[in-house]
Deep mutational scan, measured.
Amino acid sequence: MFYPNSPQTSPQLTQIPYGQQYAMMQRQIQQPYHPFATTEPQARLYPYHYQGPIQQEQGGFITQQSTAASPQYVQMRVTPVDQSIMSGYPNQTANGSSSSSFNYNIHPQQQQQQQQQQQQLRHHAMPVGSVPLQDDRYRKQLIVNYLAPDVTSTDLHELFSRFGELDGARIIYDKQTNMSKGYGFVYFCHAEDAKEAVERMSGYEFHGKWLKVGYSTNPLNIVPSNSSPYVHAGSRGAAG
């Protein structure tokens, strides 16, 4: 039997160049792979992502010199942007860049009308829970959420009447099932009393439920100042 490094198959040491006398086997001759043993700084910083320098080929596509990437890492192929796409944008300079302001050559009167329309939209648009300043009635009506099913309009009136005089209180019921929808409205005579009720009743436990109280901004629920107070009856038909 002959071994790869046996004296019968191995040459004389004098015939082997210096430095390879003890590297006779194939696994010894093959050098191990060192990912950080390279002179390129990109490979030292990113050993798993770097795959060699990027070269520009004919046709405008950018390719990489090395083989496919590892399945664990996804390499994105980048193509140059066609400058003709950006030619339609206004205020574009000769080098292809555009300024931040756009001039669509709008007539001054049209621009003024658009600004007025935007101001009107901001004036009428009102986020949930906010209180408008032009109508004091919005500051007097509250919406009470997360009410228990057994709470009546009379219970709601008695709960909030300790903060001040009320114009009314009612629970909203479903017309088909005649069941409470879980929320109601309270109408105060003074805005200061309503503000105190919002601050003190939010998070209050009532009939096993934690109440959420806020201003009601729905104009359909506003009680006119010259109208008669609501009837605080315990029956659902009268309260709904």
Results as ranks from 00 to 15, higher is better:
M24L: 07
I29H: 05
P90E: 05
L45Y: 06
P47D: 04
V151G: 03
N91I: 13
P80Y: 14
P7Y: 15
I106K: 04
A148W: 02
Y48Q: 04
Y183Q: 00
T93D: 08
D193G: 07
I16W: 15
D155L: 07
V151R: 02
T9H: 06
Y89Q: 05
L211I: 12
T177L: 06
Q75F: 15
H123F: 05
Q111D: 14
P108Y: 15
L13S: 02
T177W: 08
I85C: 13
P132F: 13
Q92A: 12
G240W: 14
Q110L: 13
Y187C: 01
T38Q: 15
A125E: 07
E165S: 12
R44W: 15
H107V: 10
I143F: 01
H49Y: 12
Q119W: 15
E57Q: 14
K181M: 02
G237F: 06
D155P: 11
G240F: 07
Y46N: 10
Y146A: 00
Y183E: 00
P90C: 08
Q110G: 09
L211K: 00
D82G: 12
Q58K: 04
P149Y: 07
K140V: 00
N95A: 09
L156D: 04
M76P: 06
F36V: 07
Y89R: 07
F163Q: 01
Y104P: 07
S87W: 15
P132T: 04
F185P: 02
Q109P: 07
M179P: 02
L13Y: 14
L133Q: 05
F102K: 02
I143M: 01
V213Y: 01
Q64W: 15
G208E: 02
I85S: 08
S161I: 11
P229M: 04
V131D: 07
L45A: 12
F61V: 04
T152D: 04
Q12A: 10
P149T: 10
T9S: 10
P17V: 14
G52R: 09
T9P: 03
S161W: 09
Q111K: 03
S100Q: 12
K212E: 00
D150E: 09
M86E: 01
Y146C: 00
T67F: 14
G88R: 07
S70Y: 15
V213E: 00
M86N: 01
A68D: 12
F102Q: 09
P41A: 10
K140C: 02
M126F: 14
L13A: 11
V231H: 03
R27Y: 15
R27S: 10
S66Y: 15
G129I: 03
P149R: 09
E192Y: 09
D193E: 05
M126Q: 02
T79Q: 10
P7Q: 10
S98W: 15
D155W: 01
I29R: 06
A68E: 04
T14K: 06
V81L: 04
N5W: 15
H34S: 05
G96P: 05
Y48F: 10
P35F: 15
G234D: 02
Y173C: 05
Y73M: 15
V198M: 09
S202Y: 06
K209Q: 00
L159I: 04
Q114W: 14
F2E: 03
I172V: 01
V151D: 01
E165M: 09
P90G: 11
Y138K: 01
R162A: 11
E205Y: 14
G203W: 01
F160Q: 06
S227P: 14
Q112T: 09
M76F: 14
S180P: 11
L156V: 08
N226D: 03
Q55G: 09
K195C: 11
E40S: 07
S66W: 15
Q112A: 12
V78M: 10
F185K: 00
Y3N: 07
Q109D: 04
I222T: 09
V144H: 03
P219R: 00
Y230M: 10
T63C: 12
R27F: 15
